[in-house]
Nucleic acid binder design. Structure first.
Lengths: 343, 343
DNA sequence: TTGAAAGCGCTAACAG
DNA sequence: CTGTTAGCGCTTTCAA
């Protein structure tokens, strides 16, 4: 009912020109105190709000940040969004979120549907599909078109842009070292398939820790969880593999998982085999989410600081928007070990 | 570099008028085949995309849906977003998400910052702060301003608008009945404080199930988890209460929790007291999220079908946008019990 | 079949 | 100090 009021209407009511109203509402000193007071009061009374569409059209910027993540229903990404949202709104930006559902095609579609003049810039974590496909044209095209992109978490080496990443290798190294220092010698690593760089990095860290401690790691203790089927299938096949490994090698005394669900599966198998955590086996995982916090026992986790990551990504983007010529920057976030006595 | 091309530029290049270009790109039959072909080819080559800002300004609608949720880092809400996003994008709408962080003030601020002409309508789950405050003006104001609102999950009786809610009472009734049918007689209910209507509904269902089975429920078996402190504090005080209850009443044989974290706390306490699930105690909780799926043992859960909820909410909103005069509608979603053998 | 012109709501340079 | 005007990119009516 109480339709939005415009400058034009105010001008007409008060019998002044539109630009006078515009200036008055901006508290411009060009306008006389009297008039200003009158106009401001009137505008306030009628709850005048400039039409952001018109403003954006005029300035050719909508102050909107597009975030594209592989999955929304994921604690880590939700944390990142949280961080982006906070920093963005502190700086007057609005955030639009879309999910690629880990699919290359959807990622491309999302980018293209947002890259119209609506969006000022992107914050993206690429989908597994894209990593598999190794086709990054949609991203480099966007950058070339003049729309800045910040890549986070799952980044792409070949693309030059701002990035925020976790020091996955160091995290895995420290986690593994921690286990080794506790006297653990036969440590299983549960990781992803090779095309996901993060999993790779973490595997490297695992290996480095072993090398440094002069322990020969066994290749068959590195278990790669498949990604080809449904989540349920992948996890249940992981469960079988893990059970086999644990039965075959009764002297296994440590497990490090690259994400929470893998760790939950490990916990399940350990329970089934009646192996105690941490008495018999130390368990540790990446990602400090709701699973590791609420499992019994809680699992010690390497936090990736999702919210901080989101904040940093938003900051990088906003800085670039202010100054498109600045050098590309890569922020690296260190993992923090949250010890919950599962080690 | 490759700056976006406009109608004007195309018109100039091809030496026709802007409106001809506009029409040609719309495949209007007003325009001759020849010209149309030429223009369309040119536009395609230069990847012409209409500036959505200008289109929106013209049509006075941006096709944007604003979603305001209490918390992003929450499996259920993430699922809802997922659903909204899907239905929205199927219908050409974009989704903007903001989080109120359970705070009244932030909810008000979010609504007001979005209710400019940018947003066509809202999908909201009100914050705990708002429920506590019992101040719903920001929402009724929005509706009166002509911006439609769909309330979901945590709805408000006093406000007339479209709603999507879960049949919480029936869900709790069925969950409790299930336990009773399994021979459980002393069932603890872990719920929220009273001002959250959902918790209340669930408590009612719990009571009804008892009444129907002619079992006297004990008031002191209804444990209300406080909401005043930090989450950690609230949960650890819940832990203590629960432990006391279980020690005092050694014949307790069932627990029903209104959310996953409460159930996780219960699992922890049960483990500590060496009480087996489901042998000694049946456990069941609302919300089919990642905790209940991945805990050991997995917890039987009453799914609230978050994604479906999101889809329905988006549908209601889009329908109303098409036809603002239609009657208000409340969609009720039934909970589904996902049995994971914790009963 | 094509084009001129007005207008969506706002800003800003320029004139008065 | 205030107003006129042009223009952001697009749609649409009306005229040619």
């Amino acid at each position: 009912m109480n339709q939005k009021i415009t400058l034009k209407q105010i001008a007409k009511e008060l019998d002044v020109s539109i630009s006078t109203v515009s200036k008055a509402l901006k508290d411009s000193k060009e306008i006389g105190e009297e008039t200003k007071k009158k106009i401001q009061a009137f505008a306030k009374y009628y709850k005048y709000r400039p039409n952001p569409l018109a403003v954006s059209l005029k300035n050719n910027t909508a102050k909107i940040i597009g975030v594209i993540i592989p999955e929304i229903v994921h604690h880590f990404f939700a944390e990142v969004i949280n961080g982006v949202e906070k920093t963005a709104s502190e700086n007057g930006y609005t955030v639009i979120i879309t999910s690629s559902n880990e699919q290359f095609e959807k990622e491309v579609a999302n980018i293209s549907s947002l890259s119209d003049s609506l969006i000022d810039g992107f914050i993206i974590s690429v989908s597994k599909g894209t990593l598999k496909e190794k086709n990054y044209e949609h991203i480099s095209d966007t950058i070339e078109l003049g729309i800045p992109v910040v890549l986070f978490d799952r980044t792409i080496d070949d693309i030059e842009c701002d990035k925020v990443m976790v020091n996955d290798r160091l995290g895995a190294y420290e986690g593994t070292s921690k286990l080794i220092n506790k006297g653990r010698r036969k440590i299983i690593l549960i990781t992803t398939e090779d095309y996901i760089s993060i999993g790779n990095e973490r595997t490297q860290g695992y290996i480095e820790a072993h090398d440094e401690a002069n322990i020969n790691y066994q290749q068959d203790l590195i278990i790669k969880c498949q990604e080809k089927g449904s989540r349920e299938k992948n996890l249940s096949s992981l469960e079988k593999n893990l059970e086999k490994s644990l039965t075959l090698n009764s002297d296994i005394d440590g497990i490090i998982a690259v994400n929470e669900s893998y760790a939950a599966v490990a916990l399940k198998v350990l329970g089934k085999l009646n192996i105690k955590v941490p008495e018999n086996v130390s368990l540790i995982c990446f990602s400090d989410g709701v699973i590791s916090q609420f499992s019994t026992p809680p699992i010690s986790a390497l936090s990736q600081h999702g919210e901080l990551m989101g904040r940093k990504a938003a900051n990088l983007l906003i800085e670039r928007l202010k100054n498109p010529e600045r050098d590309f920057q890569t922020d690296v976030i260190e993992c923090t070990l949250i010890d919950r006595n599962s080690i």
